[in-house]
Design a protein around this nucleic acid. Structure first.
Lengths: 144, 144
DNA sequence: CTACAAGTTCAAGTTAACTTGAAGTCAAGC
DNA sequence: GCTTGACTTCAAGTTAACTTGAACTTGTAG
């Protein structure tokens, strides 16, 4: 009762490569126990955790951010539905902002690119205000 | 008449770093002439081209894709408004798809994470169908 | 008992989109 | 004429999120 899963089991059921699972563990996003052999064994609840990670990635969070969210889960027990839903509280806002930006970009497709306003100085589209700052390489001035 | 811009002029007016401008040129996204000294000189129309690049990046296109779009512009003259607006034809669809996915993810926040359905096997949210294939590293199975 | 598949660690490679650094040239003000 | 800042090229470094490869060990089916 409570059969543990091998890394291949988890990989197959989640669609996440074994190498990625090891990587997530290294980054502290997931945990595993070990069989006597040294092989990883996962609790079934890992699948939900992984689904959450994938979900959060689709929304646009980095692994670091996801890790911070996951750290808020109770450590002493398997997270409940309530635990999970509390995590995603701020996300709705984040998604809404991104949707709003895309809609703004979308209307700019017809209005802005065709007209003279896509000229950097005046066009609000080329310089959206709500972009989260990015670290590292990239055109940070405009994109972040 | 028709004063050419230096790389610093263009950088300052576009917000794109000089190093990035050289990089874009290397990738064939923009072009420059050279002063006798070997220094780059840009035509004013470069600013619109750069705005277009930034815009396309916000939508989510890679530089390679943007380069392919830009290649469709007429080479023999400065692109007209019409030229520019024709490029962005397919983009609306692309934006709409991404918006739809985000909206799906958004409703899943309340419905899906809280309930038992975020269990990989059954939840459509964790495995959206409309994701464009990514090359290179990354969880391609789920995310692409 | 012997294959061979599956697991392990650790170091190094990959991709995108740039940035940074080194080493040298050019231009403008005093 | 000299200093300072802008510019050049070319090679190498950066970040995220993994993957790949090497070298070994374990588990399992026949």
């Amino acid at each position: 009762m409570d059969p543990m899963l091998t890394i291949t089991d988890v990989s197959r059921r989640s669609g996440v490569a074994s190498s990625a699972l090891r990587f997530y563990e290294e980054r502290g996003l997931i945990a595993s126990e070990r069989a006597g052999s040294g092989h990883r064994r996962y609790h079934r609840s890992i699948l939900r955790r992984i689904a959450f990670i994938i979900f959060a990635q689709r929304i646009g969070l980095t692994l670091e951010e996801i890790g911070a969210e996951l750290a808020k889960l109770p450590a002493d027990r398997v997270p409940s539905r309530r635990d999970w839903s509390q995590l995603s509280g701020e996300w709705a806002t984040r998604i809404d902002e991104r949707i709003a930006e895309l809609q703004r970009l979308r209307s700019g497709l017809t209005e802005c690119i065709g007209c003279g306003c896509l000229s950097i100085d005046r066009c609000g589209l080329a310089n959206p205000a709500d972009v989260a700052g990015r670290k590292g390489p990239g055109p940070r001035y405009w994109l972040g």
